[in-house]
Design a protein around this nucleic acid. Structure first.
Lengths: 155, 155
DNA sequence: GGCTTATTGACATTGAATAGCAATTTCTTT
DNA sequence: AAAGAAATTGCTATTCAATGTCAATAAGCC
């Protein structure tokens, strides 16, 4: 399906360049973690990432994950999505169509969507405030269909 | 300026009703905390709120603040804005014109803005996904004018 | 291969947020 | 207005995500 024609650099190549530029080193541990992050398009937190890496038989310490995340953010490969139950949640943004989130306040279900009007808003903001816009995060919070039904029944 | 004509209930009245509805109690401690939150339109975190309450001579424990915040969120009086340096930041949403944030990635400066197109997006989402939309949060991240200048100089 | 220095992993530490509990205080019910 | 049931407060102890420390290891350059 997504036949990569060798034109876009992979996330690993990008990160390798990023590290070299900073005088840092490319290690097997870092590669393993990045491969795992990019193996799905799901959101993740440090704990779930750690577990899925372990389940695949790799022995990597949690500290290495914690240390890698700020670097991946700096390299624009992942970003913070939301903070829930005491843990930050992330998702990779490279190689993944940008999208916004529609979240149910009650059951935490998430729908993804995108809307070109946000890009227009960004352009206007650049003109109005003189910012160079890098990215945005739009979270819409509401009640999903079934939670509305439940709420109506219990009133 | 903002002559309150007694028509809109105050945040305290709303919260009082909310508490009664839940079988909970209205206490002087809760009133003091709410008054402090609504005395400015600034963002706050638990620590800064605790300090400003103490500076006004009130003796309220931090635990009471931590316990009150989820209630205020439930009552739709405040909401989480962003998580930074290990602390959640909040702002009150009742009695305060809704707005979005344009944040500088480098220096953390924040510009507030609002845009009617977001309301249109919400309406479309309700139709498309069958959600009842309650609110949204749009954070645009970029580089402010002076940080762009700095970046250009040091390249 | 050898050298410099970043990185790893294990453990200790920090600090925001939560839980437990006795002493109070609210609020309803006489 | 007084009493009683139950929620709340403030203190302390606890949890646990995230960070710091440091010796051992390994990457990357010559």
């Amino acid at each position: 399906m997504t036949a990569r024609k060798g034109k876009n650099p992979s996330e690993l190549e990008i990160f390798r360049d990023f590290l070299k530029h900073q005088g840092m080193r490319y290690t097997p541990e870092r590669e393993t973690i990045i491969r795992e992050i990019f193996s799905t398009h799901e959101h993740f937190d440090v704990d779930s990432l750690y577990l899925s890496i372990r389940q695949k038989g790799h022995r990597i310490s949690k500290a290495s994950i914690y240390r890698l995340i700020p670097l991946l953010i700096q390299a624009n490969l992942i970003e913070e999505v939301f903070f829930e139950k005491g843990q930050m949640h992330y998702e990779h943004i490279y190689g993944h169509e940008h999208h916004c989130h529609l979240r149910c306040k009650q059951c935490s279900k998430i729908e993804e969507f995108s809307d070109h009007r946000v890009a227009q808003i960004e352009q206007d903001l650049e003109k109005r405030f003189g910012y160079k816009v890098l990215r945005h995060r739009l979270d819409v919070i509401g009640l999903c269909k079934s939670c509305q039904k439940k709420a109506a029944e219990s009133s």
